[in-house]
Design a protein around this nucleic acid. Structure first.
Length: 427
RNA sequence: GUGCCCAUGGUGUAGCGGCAACACUAGAGUUUGUGGAACUCUCAUCACGGGUUCGAAUCCCGUUGGGCACCCCA
């Protein structure tokens, strides 16, 4: 930066609700990626990556036309050939699309996938809620039995435990299938039919649009009015009921503590039977850290063979927020050696030595711009380097480089040619 | 999309109509080649745009961004 020359330039900002992941928090994101890859391997989930852009219809059909996401939260725009393109607001519909398009159902069943990447929702930003946010997701196709549901919850638990997160709440529910849910809806509507006047304006809208949503309204009047309302778990058909019961009993045998929240409703239309949500007390209103459920009808609805499926997604920023709150240690790796040089010739020699060391897998850093030896040492100290090599005219002449151990201040000399055998570098 | 709150160096704050201050961080230096301490110096068109005023960081309007809650969700 040239001094005294401040140019008048427009002040750019990241778009609303979008943020940079800076070097200081990247190690935490990396920790999540690493842990997810590890766990995915244990459970035989393989990596899949879908485009960030999809045709708008995929989400309209998949998530549901009347959902908030589709109605008001999608980034949808025409491309140059006037196709309607959407920045993916979630990961399940794209993976289902890929599963069908690439005929992955011809591979041995079940097929299990995981992915990670940015999602986009045009919402009002808040702590823990962004317009571009990152998710790690998991989808498993081709197994209907509750064993898979329980296994997936267990997988999620193991992942969270890897990150030392134990104070999380597991909530589970079953929202039935296309056979039993309509009966429940009817029962719910008739329960509320006499009470509509007392419900909040939002719930009046829900009453006709999506009565299930009245159940998780936070308005106290609505909470009062729904006391004694019919529970979905009492209306499950025989198959859904035994699926749910078996699922719960497997969670018990796996020693996973959970609570049944029969008011938990998912905002995406594709869910059937098992749904679940993991919440944290460390976040504000946006406390859901991971959520998912079964979607046994979606593959068929998209034109594929009837294939039961289940999946979940983890909100990375929210998890990172918790890790930060817990002061989770993460280290920025320090160079093993800092090469301080005096003069142009030494500086060039320093680059050669650094490159030689790096090619042997040793992390090395250099002084730049002819900074004084003092300031180079100061920087070496701040970076946390273990050793400094000092190269000046004398050293170039004699072929012997000075080394200094920054931890115990010991010093010594070593020949330039023998530098990569310097034993301190391998401790 | 709705309601409320906020915006001063890189960070955290003070200033409340009259010379923009403090702490920390970062960079440079303290007589010529040795870090961590001390000291010195450097780093702000007070988020942006307009208005009121002799005079605005301060008062008013708008914009942008952030936060809390709702809606909804990961």
């Amino acid at each position: 930066m040239p001094e005294n020359q401040k140019e008048k330039s427009p002040s750019f900002q990241a778009p609303k609700g979008m943020h940079d992941i800076l070097p200081e928090s990247w190690p935490l994101f990396e920790k999540l990626y690493k842990a997810s890859k590890e766990i995915a391997d244990f459970y035989n989930f393989s990596r899949i990556e879908t485009p960030i852009l999809e045709n708008v219809d995929l989400f309209v059909r998949g998530i549901g036309e009347a959902t908030d996401i589709v109605e008001k939260e999608m980034y949808t725009f025409p491309d140059r050939a006037d196709r309607s393109i959407t920045l993916r607001p979630e990961g399940t519909a794209p993976v289902v699309r890929s599963y069908i398009e690439n005929h992955l159902y011809n591979l041995p069943s079940p097929q299990k996938f995981f992915y990670s990447g940015p999602m986009f929702r045009y919402e009002r930003p808040q702590k823990g809620r962004f317009r571009q946010f990152y998710q790690i997701g998991v989808e498993a196709f081709g197994a209907a039995e509750p064993k898979l549901d329980a296994e997936i919850i267990s997988m999620l638990k193991l992942f969270l435990e890897r990150l030392q997160l134990r104070e999380l709440k597991f909530e589970v529910n079953s929202i039935g299938c296309e056979k039993c849910r309509p009966d429940y809806k009817k029962a719910l509507v008739s329960f509320f039919s006499g009470k509509v006047a007392g419900l909040c304006p939002d719930c009046n809208r829900r009453y006709s649009n999506n009565p299930l949503r009245i159940l998780d309204c936070k308005n106290s009047a609505c909470a009062e009015l729904r006391k004694g309302s019919p529970k979905i778990t009492d209306y499950l058909c025989g198959e859904c009921k035994s699926h749910f019961e078996e699922f719960l009993s497997l969670l018990n045998s796996l020693n996973i503590s959970y609570i049944i929240n029969s008011d938990m409703v998912r905002g995406l239309d594709y869910y059937t039977r098992t749904t679940f949500e993991i919440t944290s007390g460390h976040l504000g209103a946006q406390k859901t850290v991971a959520a998912g459920g079964r979607y046994d009808r979606l593959v068929e609805e998209f034109g594929g063979p009837a294939t039961p499926a289940i999946g979940f997604a983890i909100g990375m920023e929210r998890l990172v927020e918790i890790l930060k709150a817990l002061n989770s240690d993460f280290c920025i790796s320090a160079p093993k050696v800092f090469i301080a040089t005096i003069g142009k010739d030494a500086s060039d020699q320093g680059l050669l030595i650094a490159e030689k060391l790096r090619s042997k897998g040793i992390q090395a850093e250099l002084g730049y711009d002819n900074a004084s030896l003092k300031s180079q040492l100061r920087r070496a100290d701040k970076l946390g380097a273990s050793y400094v090599f000092i190269i000046g005219d004398d050293e170039l002449k004699s072929g012997m480089i000075k080394w200094k151990n920054l931890k115990d201040s010991s010093q010594g000399e070593i020949g330039i040619a023998a530098i990569s055998e310097f034993e301190g570098l391998y401790r």
